[in-house]
């Protein structure tokens, strides 16, 4: 792609999110979301591969529908109460519609079906942008809207964690597994949204760090399914020991960073007298843990009988820069002892 066009598109991605961040008016928030969607579409379709084009089409349809629903809800709100402010949503019907539209935008459980298919059709870099940066603007809106009824968010959250766990069980494609793990993590964030928005934000950022390091390490070992992952020890032996730790951190095992948000969320839910819900959420994390464990098993804990196509490619110097991966993966693995500092960063 022409560097000027690439620069324009990346600028558009940043601009859209910034406009949504800075807006207090629904029309501007909608404009930011539209700029975001329109900027990533050429990036997604740039390889002209049938899979990429199909993924782009599905993404476009879902995002355009969600944006139109969002604008419809805010115009209805303006007709009903005369308000365009994001913070002052008084009528319950538009608020519910907006919550559902944003759920479609970020891919929460009953509205998640576009997410695994779209991620499957993209390359890993665009997939990384899609599953981290593109979630930021809708999430910022979701944090600002006062929730209309408590049950809607709880149902969305618990369905997302369950579906994210069940859906990933039978997958062999890494990008689909990543999509389902994204759905499950978003479910955790939505569960605690109305009780403690700062905790939601903390979870979002920890998820970003973990997903970033996982995507980058898959990109370095050039793996898109479990089979490739099994022979990647010959390509990057150090990564073979790092990736299982990142995966278990995503799964939320105690000495790793991924445990921090789950711990705080379970504590908050118990504080709100929602212990049964907290139990179901914690059990659904086991489903996700199963497929993370299967990935790490195939990669590190066993020696596969696959034939290698080249002899020991790790001798060749790698062309990719690994500094971002080093920073992100060390944050993924050992941020838990800094838990009070991390949590204090996000309290407001």
């Amino acid at each position: 792609m022409n560097p000027y066009i690439l620069a324009t598109l990346l600028f558009g991605l940043g601009l859209g999110t910034t406009i949504t961040f800075a807006s207090s008016h629904w029309l501007f928030a909608w404009m930011g979301l539209e700029i975001n969607t329109l900027a990533i579409i050429p990036l997604m379709a740039q390889s002209h591969h049938p899979r990429a084009v199909e993924a782009t089409t599905k993404y476009f349809l879902a995002q355009a529908t969600a944006a139109a629903m969002l604008l419809f809800a805010s115009i209805s709100n303006a007709w009903l109460s005369g308000q365009w402010d994001i913070h002052q949503m008084s009528h319950p019907l538009p608020t519910t519609l907006i919550t559902l539209a944003l759920a479609l935008k970020i891919g929460l459980a009953p509205l998640h079906t576009w997410m695994p298919e779209v991620l499957q059709g993209l390359d890993l870099t665009t997939g990384l942008i899609l599953s981290t940066w593109q979630k930021l603007a809708p999430f910022c809106l979701l944090l600002q809207v006062q929730p209309a009824n408590a049950t809607l968010l709880l149902v969305l959250g618990i369905t997302s964690t369950l579906v994210g766990g069940w859906g990933g069980l039978n997958q062999t494609q890494l990008r689909k597994i990543l999509a389902y793990s994204s759905i499950a993590h978003l479910g955790w964030m939505i569960l605690v949204l109305q009780f403690s928005p700062s905790l939601t934000f903390l979870t979002l950022l920890v998820y970003f760090i973990m997903t970033f390091s996982l995507f980058i390490s898959f990109k370095i070992s050039n793996a898109t399914n479990i089979n490739t992952l099994a022979t990647s020890w010959a390509k990057a032996p150090a990564l073979t020991s790092i990736i299982p730790l990142i995966l278990l951190s995503l799964g939320g095992l105690p000495p790793l960073t991924g445990f921090l948000p789950k711990w705080l969320i379970l504590q908050e839910l118990t504080k709100q007298d929602l212990a049964p819900l907290a139990t179901v959420a914690a059990l659904s994390a086991l489903l996700s843990l199963f497929f993370y464990l299967r990935l790490s098993y195939a990669m590190t804990l066993t020696m596969t009988p696959n034939n290698l196509t080249a002899t020991l490619p790790w001798r060749l110097p790698s062309l990719q820069t690994t500094l971002p991966l080093a920073i992100a993966s060390s944050a993924t693995i050992c941020l838990l002892p800094l838990a009070p500092a991390t949590a204090a960063l996000f309290t407001w």
């Binding site: 899979r51 084009v53 089409t57 298919e117 494609q173």
Partner: peptide, 23 residues
């Protein structure tokens, strides 16, 4: 533009043919 792209890659614009990514 996406309509043109799908017509070129899939040969048709029917939504039924957009089934490469399911599994």
């Amino acid at each position: 533009a996406l309509l043109v792209a799908t017509a070129r890659t899939h040969g048709t614009d029917r939504l039924q043919s957009l089934n490469l990514l399911q599994c």
